[in-house]
Simulated scan of single mutants.
Amino acid sequence: MSEAAPTPQEGAIQALHSAIEEAAGLLEVEYARDRVLRILDLYGGDLAEGVVAFRVSTGARRAGELDCRFTVPRDTDPYELAVKNGLLADTDHPVSRLLADISENCPVDGYGIDFGVVKGFKKIWVVLPRTELQPVAHLAGIASMPPSLGASLDFIARHGLGDTVGLLGIDYVGRTVNIYFGEPPEGGIAPESVRSMLREIDQAEPSEQALRLGQQAFGVYVTLSWDSPLIERISFAVATTDPASLPVELDDRIDLFVRHVRAADPDTKFVYAVASQPDGEYYKLQSYYRWGSGVPEIMQLPEGVLADPV
Rank of each mutant, 00 (worst) to 15 (best):
E186K: 11
L285V: 06
E186P: 09
A53R: 08
I124A: 04
F181L: 13
A82K: 05
T91F: 06
P6D: 07
V222A: 14
D46Y: 07
Y79P: 06
A264S: 04
N105T: 09
R74L: 09
I254M: 07
S276T: 12
G166R: 10
K122Y: 05
A5W: 06
T240R: 14
E80S: 14
A63S: 11
P191N: 02
I39G: 01
F257T: 05
H93L: 06
V271P: 04
R69D: 13
A4I: 01
A137P: 03
Q277N: 15
A307K: 13
T58V: 08
V136H: 00
E200C: 04
R233Q: 11
R61S: 13
L128S: 06
L99C: 00
A140H: 00
I20L: 08
E28A: 11
E21W: 11
S193V: 08
D101R: 01
R199K: 07
L133A: 15
I20Y: 02
D77Q: 15
V136G: 10
Y272A: 09
S57L: 12
H159E: 06
A210P: 08
F257M: 09
E28P: 00
Y282K: 01
M299K: 14
L211V: 00
S148F: 01
F115I: 06
S287A: 14
D267W: 09
G174E: 14
T131R: 15
P191D: 02
A307E: 14
G86Y: 15
D114W: 06
G174L: 12
K84H: 11
K123P: 07
A140E: 11
I298F: 07
T223S: 14
E205V: 05
D114L: 09
G160Y: 11
E232N: 12
D77A: 15
E186H: 11
D77I: 02
E22L: 15
H17L: 02
N85S: 10
G166K: 07
L42Y: 01
E281K: 13
V56A: 10
E183R: 15
R290Q: 05
G116V: 10
D279I: 14
H159Q: 06
R38G: 13
Y288L: 10
S18Y: 09
G120R: 08
L87I: 03
P296V: 00
S245Q: 12
L246N: 10
R233K: 10
F218N: 04
R158F: 02
Y79S: 05
A5N: 10
P129Y: 07
L250K: 08
V222L: 13
D154Q: 05
E10M: 03
S152T: 00
P229L: 03
S18E: 15
I298H: 05
D265N: 15
F181A: 02
T164G: 05
R97M: 12
G169M: 01
L211I: 03
I113T: 03
D109T: 02
V108K: 06
G86M: 15
R158V: 08
A5Q: 13
P247I: 10
V248Q: 11
P309M: 14
P266G: 07
M1G: 10
Q277I: 00
Q9F: 02
A53E: 14
F70D: 10
V173R: 11
S245C: 04
